[in-house]
């Protein structure tokens, strides 16, 4: 009967690797807070799936060591589970589309859903590497195994975080405050025509007194390929409206000659610095990364 039981070393290995793997999810979930659909229930949901992912990663090494090779096939279950995470995240965000100030857009939703899926792989890989390290060290002193396994797990997490960290609009463009001007009910920002939807006196007055605008200037001409993308502009507008709220009206407009993008709205919170920050920190969508300059990861160099 005792032969059928799992050994103490393996239990410790599984527990340590699961804890480090779950910790990996806890540490990466904060980064996603801005994109988060719901708090605290959405938070809880991803912590639990992170825990399950970590547990799956942690079980792989003990399963191999006990010659239980077929048990490793449960990793395929993990892949299916993570795909479901992506699917459910996408569905959830799409359901929310009609209730937000501005649409996130399909491209942004796809990017967020992919991020959530990949963060589960973080948990799995970190837990797996932690367990593998503990097995390889195989010291007689229990604490040595735990400490070294945990350290290696955390290093792997750091590398994965740097690798997966995407770029933002602020990395490839300059975001400046725009000057709003209304000429005969037409809205201009820094001399760029934006909209003529301000036909009534109230609308013109409201935009003139309460409107905020930012203008995005790409650093290089080829960055326009990413910035001009409608999904990317929609994502920037979404982040702007979500940060400040919308009292009335929100517009985005691109100027063709120089590739300048205008984002303007009448916000609830009138804070231009927040607006500039929100636009700067808007992630560059994976689906619009077409140039090598923006595809470089942050694995080496600055974070």
């Amino acid at each position: 009967m005792k032969d059928g039981l799992i050994s103490t070393e393996h239990i410790i290995m599984i527990v340590t690797a699961t804890i480090i793997g779950t910790l990996a999810r806890v540490l990466t979930i904060k980064e996603d807070f801005r994109q988060y659909p719901s708090y605290p229930n959405g938070y809880m949901l991803h912590l639990v799936t992170g825990f399950v992912a970590a547990a799956l990663g942690a079980f792989a090494i003990p399963a191999l060591m006990t010659k239980n090779f077929t048990a490793v096939t449960f990793l395929t279950v993990a892949i299916q589970q993570f795909r479901d995470v992506r699917k459910s995240e996408r569905e959830s965000l799409k359901d929310l589309e009609n209730t937000e100030y501005a649409f996130r857009g399909d491209a942004y939703i796809d990017g967020i859903a992919k991020t959530f899926e990949s963060r589960n792989y973080f948990s799995l890989i970190v837990a797996f590497v932690t367990a593998l390290t503990m097995q390889m060290i195989d010291s007689n002193i229990l604490w040595v195994n735990i400490v070294i396994g945990s350290i290696v797990g955390i290093i792997v997490l750091y590398i994965l975080k740097r690798f997966s960290k995407g770029k933002t609009i602020g990395d490839i463009a300059e975001v400046k405050i725009g000057t709003i001007e209304i000429k005969e009910s037409e809205l201009f920002v820094d001399g760029i025509y934006v909209s003529n939807l301000l036909g009534s006196d109230n609308a013109s007055k409201m935009f003139q007194t309460e409107g905020l605008a930012v203008v995005i200037y790409p650093h290089e001409d080829h960055y326009r390929v990413a910035l001009d993308n409608y999904g990317q502009r929609q994502a920037a507008l979404f982040e702007a409206t979500r940060t400040l709220g919308v009292k009335r009206y929100h517009f985005t407009r691109k100027e063709y000659e120089k590739g300048i993008i205008v984002i303007t709205l009448v916000p609830i919170i009138k804070d231009i610095d927040k607006l500039v920050e929100a636009v700067k920190k808007t992630p560059l969508l994976e689906s619009v990364k077409k140039s090598h300059a923006v595809m470089d990861t942050n694995l080496v160099g600055r974070e």
Binding site: S185, L197, S200
Partner: peptide
Amino acid sequence: ADVVKMKNGDYL
């Protein structure tokens, strides 16, 4: 709804 003032003086 939103209002557009057309150049010919009409409103949409």
